[in-house]
Computed example of a mutant assay.
Amino acid sequence: MSDVFHDRQARGWARTGWLQAHYTFSFGSFNDPTRMGFRALRVINEDIVAGGSGFAEHAHDHFEILTFMLSGELEHKDSAGHHGRLRAGDVQLISSGTGVKHSERNPAEAPTHLFQIWLHGNADHLQPRYQLLQGALLGTNGPRLVAGAAEQPGVLQLRAPVNIWAVAGQPGECCSHDIQPDRFGWLQVLEGVVLADVDGEPQPLELRGGDGLQLSTVKQISVAPQTEARWVWFDLA
């Protein structure tokens, strides 16, 4: 596998009366055999959901499903009895395991803007589990670990060998992400503009909200916000 820049403008997309969606990897009617995921990552969708609308009840199994809320609200209900009300800055995790049905609805008038990311899980024999981390995408002092394979206070516990950091940065700041031997990295910009200085590359790469950077060979990347920006860093097995 090589290092790849995933341009937001090359994503698949869908438009309905209530949903605007962009797909980094093959999803729904967007089918590209060269875009089937990276390591544990299988789905990276950016959705804007109109007020009073949403996804009717549907089923999942196997996947770890993370929702990163940028603005608006989202109401989650599932067949295991879990009920969550998500707001801007929150991160939700559904470990679907043996299987769960759920619905996702925007209960407000204003649109909801979110990223939903699916990871291949490694505990298909376990019952579904629901977790919510409030305010995880709001301003922090450096990277914040929001999800990981180990049980830790204030961190969503994944059923996958993945660690995920969220960063909210301002112009003039800089954040470095290291990749350990036998691990891989993915940088997903949620909003704003950043310069990514990739180890070994002569010039920094400009990334905007929706852009992704897949890293397989380098061992360090530095990210410098050019505007107020938010991004997520994935440490992958």
Rank of each mutant, 00 (worst) to 15 (best):
D3V: 14
Q9R: 01
G17Q: 10
W18T: 11
W18P: 10
L19R: 07
A21L: 04
A21K: 07
F25W: 03
G28D: 10
S29Y: 08
N31D: 11
N31V: 15
N31R: 14
D32S: 07
T34G: 00
T34A: 05
R35S: 05
M36W: 02
M36P: 04
M36C: 10
M36F: 00
G37K: 00
F38T: 09
R39L: 07
R39M: 15
R39K: 13
V43S: 00
I48R: 04
A50W: 01
G54D: 09
G54L: 02
F55E: 01
E57S: 13
E57V: 08
H58I: 07
H58W: 10
A59I: 02
D61F: 09
H62L: 10
H62K: 12
H62M: 11
F63Y: 15
E64S: 06
I65K: 05
L66C: 00
L66P: 02
T67S: 11
F68V: 01
F68I: 00
F68E: 03
M69D: 08
L70P: 05
L70A: 11
G72Q: 13
E75P: 02
H76W: 09
K77L: 12
S79F: 03
S79Q: 07
G81R: 06
G81H: 06
H83T: 04
H83S: 12
R85I: 09
G89T: 01
L93M: 03
S96E: 05
G97A: 08
T98H: 07
K101A: 11
S103F: 00
S103Y: 02
R105M: 15
P107K: 02
A108N: 13
E109H: 10
A110L: 15
A110R: 14
P111H: 09
T112G: 04
H113Y: 06
L114D: 06
L114S: 09
L119Q: 12
H120T: 13
N122W: 03
N122F: 06
L126E: 05
L126M: 04
R129W: 13
R129D: 15
Y130G: 12
G135V: 11
A136K: 06
A136D: 10
T140Q: 14
P143Y: 09
R144L: 15
R144E: 05
R144P: 03
L145Y: 08
V146I: 15
E151F: 08
E151I: 10
Q152G: 03
G154F: 05
L156S: 01
L156W: 03
V162R: 00
N163W: 05
A168H: 15
Q170P: 04
C174V: 12
C175M: 11
S176L: 08
D182A: 06
F184W: 14
W186S: 09
W186C: 12
Q188C: 02
L190M: 14
L190A: 10
G192N: 03
G192K: 02
L195I: 00
D197Q: 13
G200F: 14
G200K: 12
P202T: 01
P202Q: 08
Q203S: 01
L205A: 04
L205Y: 01
L205M: 07
L207I: 00
L215E: 01
S216W: 04
V218I: 15
Q220P: 04
I221K: 15
S222N: 13
S222K: 13
V223C: 04
Q226R: 15
T227Q: 06
R230S: 06
W231D: 02
F234C: 07
A237F: 09
A237W: 13
A237Q: 14
